[in-house]
Design a protein around this nucleic acid. Structure first.
Lengths: 341, 341
DNA sequence: CTGAAAGCGCTAACAC
DNA sequence: GTGTTAGCGCTTTCAG
C-alpha cells in the first residue's frame, strides 16, 4: 500500500537529464561510436546522478540474444562439477555475463530439456559437460548455439570446442605406477558411456604389456547407488583383481565403501587410485592416491573459450589441461593372493 | 559461410499460419483469456508445425521482469551449498524458471556486486545465503526484489522470509550428548559472523549447566586456510578442551586435519561433532558424528517460497526444517587429561 | 559528432 | 471470442 517502487530509470531519463539524445547515451555507455569529451562527461554525470543501470532486457531483445552463459552439468553436488562451475562463474563474472545453470543428471533427455530452456531464454552460449555420449547436441548447434564442452567431449572428432583434462597421460602414469608395483589384474570403474576412457585404459594396459581384460571394466551410472553396485560387483566377481582405478570421486568413494563392506583392506588387498583429487581423499584412511584434474581451471578456460568463440572464426579448438598423479597411501605392491581369492 | 541460421519463428508466424491474430496465439499459449476450442486447436497445430518456442526476451521486456530466479551462495564447492543449489534448481525446473547463479565468497561486497548484476537482468526473485550479517539486503528489497534467505537469515526479526535448519535443536541435542559423555570444556568452531549460532551455543551450554566460555569459540572465514588456522589455534591455545563442535563441513574437515597435525586422536583426545552430514564423514577415520541438515530440501522449499511470494500477500514467513544427530564414532567419554595439557 | 526513428517479440488494453 | 495496436528499453541505421 505504501512503497510504490519508483519506475526504473531508463536511458531516456538519462538522455533528458544530460540534454542529449538516447542514441548518444547508448554510444557513450557502450563505448561504440564517438562522442565529444564534453558530451561524454555530461552523460556520465547524468548516469551517476540518476544511478542508471541499463536494462539487460531491452538490450537483449534488441540484440536478439540474452548475453548470459548457459552451464549444464550432470550433478552440482559432485565436487568435480562444482569446481568446474566455480571456474565458469569466475570467467563469466569477469566478462560481466550472468550464468544460467542447469543439471542434467547425465541423462540425455533431461539434457535436451535443459537445452530447450536455454534456447527459450535466447541464451546462445553454452558450456556443457555433455550427457551420455553427447550425441544430442547436433540440433542445438545447427540452430546457432555456441557450445563448448568441458570435462568430456562428444563421440566424434572435435566438431565442438572442448576443454579437457589430459586423462590419457594421467591414466598412463597411474597404470605405470600400478604395473610397477607388480599389479597385473587392474580393474577400471568407469562412468557409464565413457567409451573413450575405457579405450584408453585398455590400450594403455596393452602398451604396458599387461593383459587387458574387458571384464575388468565395470560401468556405473551417475548415482551413488549405481557406483556402489558396480564397485561391489567388481570385487565379488573378480577376486583376482589386485588394483582398481576409479574414474571419478564418486566412483572412488563407492570403491572405498564397497571394499570395506567386503572386508578388503586398502592397500593390502587391493590398491586404489582415483581420478579427481578431493579434500576427503586425504582424510580417508588410508589417504587415497589420486590423479588430480584441474576442474576449476577447466571451467575458467571453457568460459574464456565460449566468450571468445562468438567473435572469432569458428575454428574448433580443444584445450587440454595437465593432470597430476598424487601418491598417497592407497597403493601397495601386489601380494601373491587375495584373501577370498 | 554456409549455415545461415533461419530467422527465429515468432508469434507472428504462428498467428499467420493459424489464420488468427497474435493476441489469440498469446492467449492460447498462456492460458489467459478465452478462445474457442476450434481456434485453440488451430493455434496449437500451428505451434507444433512450426516448432514455435516463445521468446523469453520479448515476454520479459513486456512484463518488465525476467522471470528467472537468482541464486546467491557463498561457495558452490561447499557441498552444503551445492545441495542447497540442487534443491533450488529442482524447484525452479518444476516451475519452468531458469536459475541465475552467483557466488559471493561470503563477502558482502561481492554479494552486493552480484545483486547488482541480478537487478541489471531484471531478476526480481532471489534466493540467497546472505553473506556476513546479511545487512546489505535492505536496498535491494526496497527496490522491489522478492528475496528469500536460505540456511541463514539476516540479523533482525524476519523481515525476509527464510528457510532454515533447526540448528537450535540440533545444537542442543549435540551438546546434551557431549555433556552426557562427561565433557565440560566444549569448543565451537564457527563461521565468522555467525552470531546467532554462537549465542545459541553459549545459551544452550549454560542451560545444561556447563560453563560457557566465550574463549572456547573460534571464528573462521569462508576459506579452508582460515578454517584450519582457527581450528589449530583452538587446539593449541586451549589444551583443556575435550570436545569440539564444528559449524559446517569445511570447518569439520579443518578440525580433523588440525587434530591430526597436532597429534590429537579423535575421539580419544578430543571428541568431534560436525554440522552437516557429508559422504566423507563416513569415510573418515573415525567416522564422524554429525548433525545432519536437509540442505537440498531447504533449497527446494526456498524455491517454492520465492515463487509463491510473488502472488501472495507479503507475510514474512520462516520455514524451519528438522536436523538430526547421527552418532558415529568421533565422540567418546571424557578422559581425565589431554596429552599436552 | 549527434538526434530521430524504427523496430526486436511479446502481452495487455481496448475495440469490435 | 478475437483482432488491432501500443509500447516495454534498448541499439542501430540513417540523416543532418
Amino acid at each position: 500500500m505504501s512503497t510504490n517502487s519508483p519506475r526504473r530509470v531508463t536511458i531516456r531519463d538519462v538522455a533528458e537529464a544530460a540534454g542529449v539524445g538516447v542514441a548518444t547515451v547508448s554510444r557513450v555507455l557502450s563505448g561504440t561510436g564517438s562522442a565529444s569529451p564534453e558530451t561524454r562527461e555530461r552523460v556520465l554525470a547524468a548516469v551517476a546522478a540518476l544511478d542508471y543501470r541499463p536494462s539487460a532486457l531491452g538490450r537483449n531483445l534488441r540484440r536478439q540474444r540474452s548475453g548470459g552463459i548457459g552451464l549444464l552439468v550432470p550433478d552440482i553436488t559432485d565436487l568435480f562439477y562444482a569446481r568446474l562451475a566455480d571456474g565458469v562463474m569466475a570467467g563469466a563474472r569477469e566478462a560481466g555475463e550472468p550464468v544460467i545453470i542447469g543439471v542434467t543428471g547425465d541423462d540425455p533427455e533431461r539434457e535436451a530439456d535443459r537445452i530447450g530452456a536455454l534456447v527459450e531464454q535466447s541464451v546462445e552460449r553454452v558450456i556443457a559437460v555433455p550427457a551420455g555420449d553427447g550425441e544430442s547436441w547436433a540440433p542445438a548447434i545447427r540452430a546457432g548455439l555456441t557450445v563448448v564442452f568441458a570435462g568430456r567431449r562428444g563421440p566424434d572428432e572435435p566438431a565442438v570446442p572442448a576443454v579437457l583434462a589430459d586423462d590419457r597421460t594421467g591414466m598412463r602414469t597411474a597404470l605405470e605406477y600400478l604395473a610397477g608395483l607388480g599389479h597385473r589384474r587392474i580393474a577400471f570403474l568407469a562412468r557409464y558411456g565413457d567409451r573413450r576412457r575405457v579405450r584408453t585404459f585398455l590400450d594403455t594396459l596393452a602398451a604396458l604389456g599387461v593383459t587387458a581384460d574387458e571384464d575388468l571394466v565395470a560401468y556405473a551410472r551417475a548415482s551413488r547407488d549405481s557406483a556402489y553396485a558396480a564397485a561391489a560387483g567388481l570385487f565379488q566377481h573378480r577376486p583376482d583383481l589386485t588394483a582398481l582405478l576409479a574414474g571419478g570421486n564418486l566412483l572412488g568413494e563407492a570403491a572405498v565403501l564397497a571394499a570395506r563392506e567386503l572386508d578388503l583392506r586398502i592397500p593390502r588387498d587391493v590398491s586404489l587410485i582415483m581420478f579427481d583429487d578431493v579434500p576427503w581423499a586425504e582424510l580417508c584412511s588410508p589417504p587415497l592416491t589420486v590423479i588430480a584434474e584441474p576442474a576449476r581451471d577447466m571451467g575458467y578456460r571453457a568460459a574464456e573459450l565460449v566468450l571468445r568463440e562468438g567473435r572469432r572464426a569458428r575454428e574448433p579448438r580443444v584445450v587440454t589441461l595437465p593432470t597430476e598423479l598424487i601418491v598417497r597411501a592407497s597403493c601397495a605392491p601386489r601380494r601373491r593372493t587375495r584373501p577370498g581369492g
